[in-house]
Design a protein around this nucleic acid. Structure first.
Length: 287
DNA sequence: AAGACGTGGAG
DNA sequence: TCTCCAAGTCT
């Protein structure tokens, strides 16, 4: 789940830390919410941390799933992860279709329809199902993703070195770089955020973010609904996948409501700190 | 079905 | 600085 929408190189150190601190699914299930958030801190898509926790609790209670259908019942595990696990762990003959695999197969068939539709997904699935090695489905799925990463890249694919170039329709048509066709464009909206800075010595006053939104469930400074008049903010630009944030911090303004907890910077960091706040503390150092 | 949801690296 | 993308899932 760490690797969902995350490069292997970006997730590796997080995976190692998780395994070192919480080596078994029972450890993961029994861990505190704050420990898991702390281990996840910096990875993004923070709801995944909760889903991982819930999934571990479910597995600790019911035992390990077997096969795609059962894996799909685990929170945080969708079609791709379920198929990857079922093929690798259980030897089930199913294609694991992540972004890499969709690229490979859409080129193989020179599929020109938008890849986002359920029709395209169904087509690619049935195509891929014909190719999955019946004896080594897990290794085969791994190999497809490795092929995508090494040769069948989004731009400038190395078709000359590709072991299946003879089979590839896009290669013959010269359209490899045009596949897969993506039509969905995510719109990036701009948003201003304002935060009070309650202080007690070395401690910051924090509140927990609502579940589901930005930085779901993490502790941050109290967000202000309106700009406090007469105070000069420290301003930081921060980009999310779907939003350009202009974040305003008011070091002179403590806010009007009592924070839920008071933490030092280190304690805060251990519970999970959004990168925008990491950058803020770097750019405007506090004691 | 389409939008919400982080972050870092590459070009 | 900007765009695109990365081992997607949930609602």
């Amino acid at each position: 789940m760490i690797l969902q929408q995350t490069r292997v190189e970006q997730g590796r150190s997080y995976w190692e830390r998780f395994l070192q601190e919480l080596p078994t699914v029972e450890d993961l299930a029994a861990a505190s919410d704050t420990q898991i958030k702390g281990l996840w801190s910096g990875l993004g898509y923070y709801r995944r941390a909760d889903l991982l926790h819930r999934g571990a609790k479910q597995i600790a209670r019911t035992g390990w799933p077997q096969g795609t259908k059962e894996w799909l019942e685990v929170p945080g595990i969708g079609p791709y992860t379920a198929a990857a696990l079922a093929s690798i762990v259980d030897g089930e003959v199913v294609p694991a279709l992540d972004g890499n695999a969709f690229r490979v197969y859409s080129r193989l068939a020179d599929w020109s329809e938008p890849i986002e539709t359920s029709r395209s997904k169904a087509f690619i699935y049935s195509l891929a199902l014909n190719f999955v090695h019946p004896k080594r489905p897990g290794d085969f799925n791994q190999a497809v993703m490795d092929l995508a990463q090494a040769l069948c890249t989004p731009k400038k694919p190395k078709c000359n070195e590709c072991p299946v170039q003879e089979l590839c329709a896009a290669r013959s048509a010269g359209s490899a770089e045009l596949r897969p066709v993506k039509t969905r464009t995510l719109k990036v909206t701009e948003q201003d955020l304002h935060f009070a800075v309650p202080r007690r010595g070395h401690q910051f006053g924090l509140v927990q973010r609502p579940l589901g939104g930005i930085w779901s469930g993490l502790y941050t400074l109290p967000e202000l609904a309106t700009v406090p008049p007469g105070f000069t903010p420290q301003v930081l630009d921060h980009r999310l996948s779907h939003r350009k944030l202009r974040v305003h911090f008011y070091p002179e303004f403590e806010g009007s409501s009592e924070p839920e907890i008071w933490l030092t910077r280190e304690e805060w960091s251990k519970r999970g700190m959004p990168q925008a706040f990491v950058h803020w503390l770097t750019e405007f150092p506090y004691i």
